[in-house]
Nucleic acid binder design. Structure first.
Lengths: 151, 151
DNA sequence: TGCAAATATATGTACATACATTTAATGTCG
DNA sequence: CGACATTAAATGTATGTACATATATTTGCA
């Protein structure tokens, strides 16, 4: 398959300049990747933010996490961690208990079924990281440029 | 200000490899740019998708657009164009009339106040395209890599 | 000690997203 | 011509996002 130029995909004839194209291209491509990933998680009845929270909890396991810790580590800092944990709790993938040493805080832990689900997902998506089509050098360039954007 | 490494921003010590880092970096950076832009549009009481729809309508002006045409050209193809047009209609920025030649379709047009608003935004954000910090060469590299990702 | 500020989380509201379903108009083909 | 598929848009429902506010607990300091 031929490379799909961003101009063709969104049917805008021409960009004013390479910078304008870059901005649109970056946002469009990230959305495209997110949709690919979301589709992959649908078979496990997980959304992308739910998966990310679950992965953070596995990283802490067997220590608990608090909502604050989740917010710190989530990609989208302003999203509502509380309500994402709600959904995971309903599915039995995490538990929520009042933190004994600070009763304002809540200890959140991944459950055995949660760990098993992540393990099944790992098996299923192994080696499919989303950027298989890039060379190592291209990936390094990409990372360097993205870091510079957020200077 | 020093470049903020993605490792520091999301507090994950180390990525498995450059590819995994690239994927997270790409999604994180696009979200970061979107938030910057959304904040800029808030003063005009517009969300990002509303602004994008309005820009497509200006591109068509004085011809009308249909909902289908909006969906084709929007960055996020699966979003709900109908309801975004609802909001713009409520604000008086677009009009909706049944298409005379095909009564299933709806002709959507940008209004004078809509054009004026876009013009004010143009003046305000002129030359601030979001990727000012990159050289032309870096921007070209970025575009080439992003196009390759969506092969 | 006691009261105000800070902290941790939850809740409310408006908007957007993702996907399925519905409604209405049009096209097609026996 | 008429049943049936197709097309265009709108609607329904669950989830997530963004931001403001509320509630409860803890901390700090006069």
């Amino acid at each position: 398959m031929q490379t799909m130029r961003i101009e063709d995909e969104i049917k805008q004839p021409v960009f004013k300049n390479e910078y304008q194209k870059g901005l649109i291209n970056l946002i469009y491509t990230a959305g495209w990747l997110q949709q690919q990933q979301a589709a992959a998680f649908r078979q496990f009845d997980l959304t992308l933010p739910q998966f990310n929270v679950l992965r953070i909890l596995r990283g802490q396991h067997p220590k608990p996490a608090t909502v604050n810790l989740l917010i710190e580590r989530m990609l989208d800092k302003t999203s509502n961690a509380s309500r994402i944990v709600d959904k995971l709790e309903t599915k039995g993938l995490v538990t929520r208990t009042v933190c004994p040493s600070n009763r304002r805080a809540v200890d959140i832990r991944i459950t055995e079924p949660g760990l098993e689900l992540l393990h099944r997902i790992d098996e299923s998506v192994k080696e499919h990281h989303g950027l298989q089509m890039l060379t190592l050098e291209e990936t390094q360039q990409l990372n360097q440029i993205l870091d510079k954007i957020r200077d």
